[in-house]
């Protein structure tokens, strides 16, 4: 009996090794409030912090978090930051908070978070924690009555490519990876303890209008739109620089191929004459010749990230424009009345 039990436990352990994919991130209301407080207080500076919680099957529970001090480019301070992190974890453990890192959060400005740094941080975290998540909060969008909270992770196929650092066209085609597949957004669930739920029900004001409604019905979205379009244009410039890099690459590639062809023809003609003269033919390849050196293909990572950002800005513009239409028509109806 005990034996079979042990085996079944082993079996369970073995089956659990095959990690079920992460489906939902469950965040406590406390964590959301903490993130918002930290990000808002320091906005427009961008800040980060650590998420603590539990990894339960396909659900990642985020039960607490703590902010990082604003980073400075100094090694001494960096070591200090590591100490701070350990100290904070130790302290939180003493008051029975889950001290299990599950990822980090960061603020962003207008959703411009798709950067190489983010990916690098992700890879760093991923080395230590099998499943980690990044929560992105946008204070600028929250002023419009939207809870701009997003949970992201890198897709597995992208991570594999990133590890081998092979972002050539061929590899990407092989994996069938497009710019949409770099980040995966995970649905967020919010949970609160019964105690908090009771308190909030108690404390909810009777007023029929909330701050959220005021924010949403605000008519002036122009500054927001303007900045969005500005960023969009900047991204377009970046993208065209990337495109030029590729054009340059292709041009030099075709030139090289033409050179190779002409060299090959010359060599063949030479071989023919040698054959006629009864001599050994020369090899048809010459690795020492500089024209056979393969040209390094520029990485497509940057252009992918820029594309991602452009798509993001487009989405935001679409969303805000849609809302503005609603508001305008509402305004018209009110005025007509």
């Amino acid at each position: 009996m005990a034996n079979s039990m042990a085996r079944s436990f082993l079996q369970v352990a073995a089956t659990e090794e095959v990690a079920s994919p992460l489906r939902v991130v469950q965040i406590e209301g406390l964590v959301i409030l903490k993130i918002i407080k930290h990000c808002k207080e320091f906005s427009p500076a961008l800040v980060t912090g650590q998420l603590l919680g539990l990894d339960v099957g396909s659900v990642l529970e985020v039960t607490n978090c703590f902010p990082f001090p604003t980073r400075e480019e100094d090694e001494e301070i960096e070591a200090d930051g590591a100490n701070y992190q350990l100290e904070m974890m130790r302290c939180l453990r003493e008051v029975n908070v889950d001290n299990n890192t599950v990822g980090w959060y960061q603020s962003t400005f207008l959703g411009s978070y798709q950067t190489v740094e983010l990916i690098e941080t992700f890879m760093n975290y991923q080395e230590n924690i099998r499943r980690c998540v990044c929560i992105i909060y946008d204070p600028s969008r929250s002023n419009q009555g939207v809870l701009a909270l997003k949970a992201l992770k890198l897709s597995d196929s992208f991570m594999e490519l990133y590890r081998t650092n092979s972002f050539t066209g061929e590899k990407l085609r092989e994996k069938n990876l497009s710019w949409v597949d770099i980040f995966e957004e995970i649905p967020i669930k919010v949970s609160n303890s019964a105690l908090i739920s009771a308190f909030m029900t108690e404390l909810e004001s009777d007023s029929p209008v909330t701050q959220c409604d005021y924010d949403r019905l605000q008519l002036s979205t122009n500054p927001f739109m303007e900045r969005n379009v500005e960023f969009l244009i900047e991204c377009m410039d970046d993208l065209s620089v990337e495109q030029q890099k590729f054009q340059f690459y292709y041009r030099s590639l075709t030139r090289q191929q033409a050179q190779q062809q002409s060299w090959l023809q010359k060599r063949r003609a030479e071989n023919m004459t040698r054959k006629a003269a009864g001599e050994e033919p020369l090899p048809e390849e010459d690795p020492t010749n500089p024209i056979f050196k393969p040209l390094p293909e520029p990485s497509r990572l940057d252009s992918y990230l820029i594309t991602n950002q452009i798509a993001n800005y487009c989405n935001q513009i679409n969303g805000v424009a849609g809302q503005s239409f609603n508001r305008l028509h509402l305004m018209k109806a009110l005025h007509d009345n």
Binding site: G29, I32, L33, I36, S142, G145, L147, L149, P187, I188, K189, V190, S191, N192, S193, A194, I196, S197, M200, T201, E204, S205, T210, Q211, C212, D215
Partner: peptide
């Protein structure tokens, strides 16, 4: 209020 009481009041909400 900015966050919405609906999110904070209930013990669990599936979707933002």
């Amino acid at each position: 209020e900015r966050l919405g009481f609906d999110i904070l009041k209930t013990t669990s909400i599936d979707k933002l």
